[in-house]
Design a protein around this nucleic acid. Structure first.
Lengths: 229, 229
DNA sequence: TATTTTTTAGACCGATCGTCTTGCAAAATG
DNA sequence: CATTTTGCAAGACGATCGGTCTAAAAAATA
């Protein structure tokens, strides 16, 4: 009461209205995009704001207009990366046109292509920040852990689909396997960066697949694509 | 010739003789010890020399007497850590008093205890530096990769002993499995740091053991300690 | 004691870090 | 148009970074 309100409920204020900072070309989005590129490559501590604002083509002075601090920026990057990655996961894991186990392989192929595209220099933002946990502010921890829980849940869902389809043994614990996958996968991305090669990704994935086919010898099914582990 | 030489062959020179810098109490060793503590926790980029020399109780000016640069110091730390770690690996993997597969578990127990002792803040130096590869000088890459090759070789030897003892299936490729182990293990250490918990170490290890018992259902052997993967 | 060399000691440097203050341009209202 | 309110940009700022430098103490030989 007393304040004039818009039909949408927004109080019509005087002064210059703020731009929509969720638009792709907005400075905020440019900063986030540049920040993702830099931090997936160098991590948080080694990434300077100067480099990020330069890559974004945004004046340094503007940075603190859009973000309270480098820390707050980092948290925003986690959210942005989580969003981007969940879309990728869903595109793979919920692709009904493919058998569930092949969806996992689609994810591998996607990741391998992504790392190759960037010369094996960019890794996983979540893994990078996780490694730096001891020099990051405490709020990062729960946020990163939550992202992993989410990825694990989506992966477990895909695994259950595979189990329901009879692609993997019926007595496998899909939640534990999904946990196992993400624990090891981050190690594989790390090694791929170190060796500048997709081999660690493949090596881990093949081992993981072999694990999935445990007990399949009993039911007589042959592993489709695993090596001789 | 022309120079006076000791009976040991060392040319006895004038001036203050240099201390043995491999002695435990020497400044150089204090710096390396402090550097290992700081870098296993914070990585290379986030670790400042000021912090390291303070922790070592050595004046900053002395640092550059013993090391040419922070980079050179980092390489020395890799060597020191590799030495320390190889001793640990051999203590576990070549312990003839234990069956080969149990030696692997001994390593797990040792690592779990080590991480707990430091509050799950210190990780693996090699993994930390590997994650930072893009912001490290190029010589680090080959050095780190060589360390992993060494660890893999020692692990593969232990696995072959297990295979010879009939603890694991005869058709398993021990070299590939060893590679798989170290790829995933570094991911497990990363997650343990993130979650400040030993659970990721155990989760990965149990999955790894399950992988080793592939085909054991055929030969009728029961997994000794793996969960229901 | 005089000389030579190693080691200690910390002030100091330019560069870069994240942050903040300040001022002006833009776009609304009255 | 004048006013108001805000968005945004530019650069200054202190702290800290890795690294350098000079000087002197320490410990040996001559």
């Amino acid at each position: 009461m007393g304040e004039e309100t818009h039909s949408t409920g927004t109080p019509r204020r005087r002064g210059r209205p703020r731009k929509d900072q969720s638009l792709p070309g907005s400075p905020r989005m440019l900063l986030i995009r540049a920040g993702l590129a830099v931090l997936t490559e160098k991590g948080f501590s080694a990434a300077g704001l100067d480099e990020i604002v330069a890559a974004a083509g945004v004046p340094k002075g503007s940075f603190y207009h859009y973000f309270d601090s480098k820390d707050a920026f980092g948290l925003a990057l986690i959210d942005a990366y989580a969003d981007y990655f969940v879309r990728k996961l869903d595109r793979c894991f919920e692709n009904e046109a493919r058998p569930p186990l092949m969806r996992l392989r689609d994810f591998l192929d996607d990741a391998r292509a992504g790392m190759a595209r960037h010369g094996y220099r960019r890794g996983c933002l979540i893994g990078n920040l996780g490694q730096e946990m001891n020099v990051l502010p405490e709020p990062f921890r729960e946020r990163l852990a939550a992202v992993f829980r989410d990825w694990e849940a989506r992966t477990a869902r895909c695994l259950r689909a595979a189990r329901a389809a009879g692609e993997i043994a019926a007595d496998l614990d899909c939640d534990r396997i999904a946990k196992f996958f993400w624990i090891g996968w981050e190690g594989a991305v790390l090694r791929a960066k170190l060796e500048r090669s997709p081999a660690p990704l493949d090596a881990f994935f093949e081992g993981f697949l072999a694990l999935l086919h445990m007990g399949s010898t009993v039911s007589g099914r042959q592993p489709a694509c695993s090596g001789q582990f």
